[in-house]
Amino acid sequence: MPRLCANLSMLFTEHDFLERFDAAARAGFSGVEYLFPYDFAATDIKAKLDANGLTQVLFNLPAGDWNAGERGIACHPDRTEEFCAGVQRAIDYAQVLGNRQVNCLAGIQPAGVSTEQAQRTFVANLKYAAAELEKAGIRLVMEAINTRDIPGFFLNTTTQALAIRDAVGSSNLSLQYDIYHMQIMEGDLARTIETNLGAINHIQLADNPGRHEPGTGEINYDFLFNFIDTLGYDGWIGCEYKPATSTEAGLGWLKAYNQI
């Protein structure tokens, strides 16, 4: 069974953010991920990780004004300076937290910006981020997201992500494969993961429809977990789902896989 980590931006939200580390450990998770650490002191987060014996698995590069609806700025031509500063900020946090991987959100394609211009900007920003992160011993991943949940998001499919990875040309850039998003955008999950396993360095999960825990929707997680295990994937799988009720009430699926 692949290693599972708790996404603290989605799970245990009944608790304040720093208390979610305690709750994740009590539930049996050994690793955590979340959207952003930047609203908290890195030393405070590190103390929670250490107190609970948790591995810091992943967080995102700064992504603009999230509360205002921004979902990344990496494809925004007028914000490259802000993007580059965000890379340095992420490195500062990652070095304190022991985090060895960060995700880049492409963002929503800005009005008036052509697809070609957005792609040139995205590729240039990824080149910069991959190089700077590599110097710090940190891997970079990028995530394709479905256009139903985030209309206009620039990066939508595995094929597009692979083409952008080729254009960047860095061995320090991989894919973050989100099972929920890719079920909506392209399906054929097992074959896509198998074909592109060498380019995938992180996986996330949720069921569809509803983005709830495995077993609540159409995705055959019994098969998929066994299949991913058979492939020899040795990375983490982030549990990035919206609990159908409360987090604790919905953890039965983990017990079924002997994870807690």
Rank of each mutant, 00 (worst) to 15 (best):
N196F: 00
H212R: 03
W236K: 10
E194I: 11
E218F: 01
Y241N: 10
T230W: 14
C239H: 08
D222V: 13
N208Y: 09
P214K: 07
P243D: 02
L197S: 06
L231S: 05
Q183N: 08
Q176K: 09
T195E: 13
T192M: 10
F227D: 10
Y177Q: 07
I184V: 09
D207S: 01
T192W: 06
Q183C: 05
M185I: 07
N220S: 02
H181I: 00
E240C: 09
Y177C: 04
I219G: 02
T230V: 15
M185H: 08
Y180W: 11
I200L: 12
N226V: 11
P209G: 03
T230L: 15
P214M: 10
G238K: 05
R211P: 00
R211Y: 02
G198T: 06
H181E: 05
A199G: 05
Q183D: 08
Q176M: 14
I219L: 02
F227W: 10
L224F: 08
L189S: 03
N201D: 15
A244R: 15
N220E: 04
I200G: 13
A190M: 11
T192E: 12
Y233Q: 05
G210F: 02
L205Y: 09
R211W: 01
D178R: 04
D234R: 14
A206C: 08
A199Y: 10
G232D: 08
R191M: 15
A244G: 14
L175A: 03
I193M: 01
I219V: 13
Q204M: 08
H212V: 05
A199Q: 13
